[in-house]
Write a protein that binds this DNA or RNA. Structure first.
Lengths: 219, 219, 219, 219
DNA sequence: AATGAATGAGCCTTCATTCAT
DNA sequence: TATGAATGAAGGCTCATTCAT
């Protein structure tokens, strides 16, 4: 008698019987949308990205997106924020304190190169650079959460290195950007010019560190 | 940036000086369109820019744009190219050969900071970074005309400095990007974070040069 | 012709009968668009027809058209094809085989006159003639599905008539167009000159048949 | 002193020194426009034809067209009229009165086939059929000048043939369209289907005449 | 008279957003 | 909650027409 399953419209993954609660499924969907949106925004930029494509890529209906986000713009902002957050914790985690400052900086920089340069996250950085001026909220957030924290951490390391005598140039503490600049360039290079001329970012990093900390193997 | 070219809207008769020939007028109009388009593209990016706005800003009718450009896309590409070209000659002009290499590099870098960072051209660089992946032709052109030439020139200077003993680090010749990275960062900083924290690019440059060439006033 | 389908504009809730499923509604809409488009194309030709007018006449939004057709051009082609198809079956249905060939031809011709000449379908024929050269696909389709089949059927009848001695002129079998020509002229006449001078197509048909089969009532 | 020839802009053909008066040149230009416009209208229909293309084809500036015609629409109407006129005289010229009526009709028909079917004029007929309903003035003109006259002339010939006993069917006089229908069909066939199946219009004509006048060589 | 640059209304098409189911 | 058909406001581009030269 019961008109059971009036229309199970392609649930597919939800077949997991009863384990997946409704909330779980919603979370899954949301994650799929976030993932898809990030891919599309990175590939096309904000304005040129179509919600249709995001929906298709996420395997949901267009309307579903509006159950999770107010509109395209806030989806974009929230997305970027979400993508940045896990990175922030990395920056705030102090590096293994043992060893030389150079080693600590090197470890940090390598981590950055591996996890950003040459990955989709490089394009995220590019995306923030590209859309920043139009999404001040994002630029602000990025500055507050990533840039200022990252620079502060770097400044502390520089200060430490100067104190320890690892770095001679005292002014560097005023410009931690100098420490980071090559990483920035590497990220953009991968994204824009890698096909023209590959860049060995890690080797460049060594040279950079040699300049700042003094060459290791002067011998 | 500034809404330059207040755009003489359809003067009834020949007004401006009376000397302006038809060709002159056409050139004027084209210049106005180029200017307006650059402003709009910089402000909004390619996809979000409306030809309507460009036309209004340039003080011409929408159709007029199509007398000068095939379509939005080729207008964009041609624009970027046109804007880059005058810069190329600067890069290829060898700096005054007298004096130390550091002086030459410093002169170059200051010129770059003054004429790019903090001007509309900084946003042009940002625009290229932003749209590069979607306009490979532009990325290619930029790499070929600006990046590779700039790096080659820088490499030559580094080589010279090493020969002369001004620079100790021999590996730097393999990574001229290291020389340029702070300039790049300065440009992007101005465009994105200046309002959060002003950056004294020239002072940063001095520190950068001290790192590479050795501090000047070590006493 | 007549603005049939008064087009229920966006009824707030489910109105019409309540039985109409979503698919039904879509089919209805599509039918309304097809109808409206046919009317407009017939009235103005392909190039001069505005999708705006089609949408308004069909009682749908402009965008809705694009849910059913790729673009104006393929809408036009598909439309013509759709309109022709039901006619093809008529042509392929052999006429009641009893009686004289003249009777069979007469039946066919009358059917044609009644269902084409003086109806919107006459304008469809005109439309095909008008746009054929610019829409070769349509001309091809029309030739393949209608013209060649119609002529083949007519040729078979002529052959039969010659065999039976109903038609004396043996060469007619090579030019079935001669049998059809007056019908063609009647159709175009109705569409173009009826208001100048009405044409009694059926009477003309009788005379035509008399010429070909010999006068009936020679006495 | 006389500011002679202030700017002979590409006159080219006008080089004929002094022979070509200004009026002559204007007439030439007008003729070129008429010719070009006819070609374009035939190739694309009224709505899809661009004045730009007409101007280019005629070798004049776009503005020049407006020195000769009020606007696109009246150009079209005037054009068709102009093209039809020379044909009217042909129709009104009685055929060589000697010989049989069949010979006269045959001569007329052959003339028509040669000068219309298979030439650009066939497309003119198609154009009139196509645009007639949207340009009632043209349809009216065409009916008045060509159709009614042509039919009247044909009717007279039929009457004569009946009187002389060349034609048996008395009703034909009421439907001179029957005499002309195959020619009409031939013209449209050439324009639409010739590439699918060539039509030997003259042979078809013979069969047609045989049907009406009786086979020639029954022997 | 002739030119063709300039205009701007208008058209096709796209796409963010809504809402009945 | 999820869907996707439907909407309609834009936006890119075209082209008949005008008008200063």
């Amino acid at each position: 008698m019961s008109d059971s399953s009036p229309s199970i419209k392609r649930r597919g993954r939800a077949a997991a019987g009863s384990a997946a609660s409704r909330a779980d499924r919603a979370a899954e969907r949301r994650a799929a949308i976030v993932q898809a949106a990030m891919d599309e925004f990175i590939a096309r930029g904000f304005a040129a990205t179509r919600l249709d494509d995001i929906a298709r890529r996420a395997g949901v209906a267009k309307g579903t997106i509006y159950l999770h986000f107010k509109d395209k713009e806030s989806m974009f902002e929230e997305l970027i924020r979400t993508a940045i957050v896990p990175f922030v914790s990395r920056l705030t985690t102090p590096p293994a304190p043992g060893g030389s400052v150079r080693d600590m900086v090197e470890a940090l920089a390598k981590m950055f190169l591996q996890e950003v340069a040459g990955t989709r996250r490089a394009d995220l950085v590019r995306l923030i650079i590209a859309e920043g001026p139009r999404f001040q909220a994002i630029a602000d957030f990025y500055y507050r959460e990533v840039v200022s924290r990252g620079l502060a951490a770097m400044r502390a390391l520089i200060q430490l290195a100067i104190t320890r005598g690892e770095i001679r140039e005292p002014n560097l503490v005023a410009y931690p950007q100098l420490m980071i600049a090559p990483m920035m360039v590497a990220v953009l290079w991968k994204s824009l010019f890698e096909r023209h001329a590959p860049l060995d970012a890690e080797a460049m990093l060594q040279t950079h560190l040699d300049l700042i900390f003094g060459a290791r193997r002067p011998q």
